[in-house]
Computed example of a mutant assay.
Amino acid sequence: MDSSATPGLVLRSHSGVVFRFDPGALCLELLTTGGPGEFRRYEVLHEPADLAAWAARSRLTPTPALEITPEEVTDARLLRDALFRIAIARTRGEPPAPEDLDTVNEAAARPPLAPAVGPDGERRWAGPADGARLIATVARDAVELLTGPFAERIRTCASDNCSLIYVDTSRPGRRRWCSMEHCGNRQKVRALRARRSTEHRPDVSRESE
């Protein structure tokens, strides 16, 4: 799983709040672009430029100069939707659908982006960089996640109105929120208001004595 110095995507909530969300894996970053069923309304992958823009925001650094076709955008959406369903199944302790696993495995079997070391010691990309190789790279990252030590730590944000999916890579394994800047902070505010409300509530039992 690739990582950068500052992993995570900058997202904007429905209320306009901007926050950083680190799902912990490249393949899970793709899930922020839309999804199957009810998540179709969040679709942002409509044309090649959209997929290239996602790659530029992702932890796949440095961003390769990608040549993407409309057909590859369709393939990216198919992979994303399969990954979405697999991840949800994991969070529920259910087996993933065989056809979704086939979609991931078929994409992972294709040639991925090829990393290389540049003269300056920095990572670069060697050979062709197209949408098919980008999709294969994401699919292989998914295989690593789903077969690795954190496969059982794929979770959905604990907020009742947030569906962001992440893998908890923290040592204690107690991450509950998509982001402490967003849902975590909102929960802190709610808890504080609840405590203050309790503290200022009159003791009815004593007043009735």
Results as ranks from 00 to 15, higher is better:
77 R>Q: 13
39 F>I: 15
100 D>W: 04
191 A>F: 06
127 G>K: 09
177 W>F: 02
46 H>W: 15
83 L>N: 06
207 E>F: 04
2 D>K: 14
178 C>Q: 02
29 E>Y: 01
56 A>M: 11
77 R>N: 15
134 L>Y: 02
55 A>M: 04
42 Y>G: 15
44 V>S: 14
3 S>L: 08
51 L>P: 02
20 R>G: 02
169 T>P: 07
21 F>I: 01
93 G>A: 08
16 G>R: 02
103 T>I: 14
26 L>S: 01
136 A>Q: 06
31 L>V: 06
36 P>Q: 15
42 Y>T: 13
56 A>R: 09
62 P>Y: 11
125 W>R: 08
82 A>V: 14
104 V>P: 03
209 E>W: 11
68 I>Y: 02
106 E>C: 12
126 A>F: 11
98 P>W: 07
206 R>K: 05
135 I>A: 01
14 H>L: 12
166 Y>A: 03
9 L>C: 01
193 R>F: 03
49 A>Y: 04
188 K>C: 04
42 Y>E: 15
45 L>T: 00
103 T>A: 11
106 E>H: 11
4 S>N: 09
120 D>Q: 09
140 R>A: 04
172 P>R: 04
12 R>G: 09
112 P>K: 11
149 P>T: 14
56 A>Y: 13
117 V>T: 13
200 H>G: 08
65 A>F: 13
22 D>K: 00
28 L>I: 03
199 E>S: 07
95 P>G: 14
67 E>P: 06
6 T>I: 14
121 G>Q: 10
150 F>W: 09
113 L>V: 05
204 V>H: 07
104 V>Q: 05
72 E>V: 04
74 T>Y: 09
69 T>V: 06
197 S>T: 09
183 C>P: 00
172 P>W: 07
22 D>N: 00
90 R>K: 12
162 C>A: 03
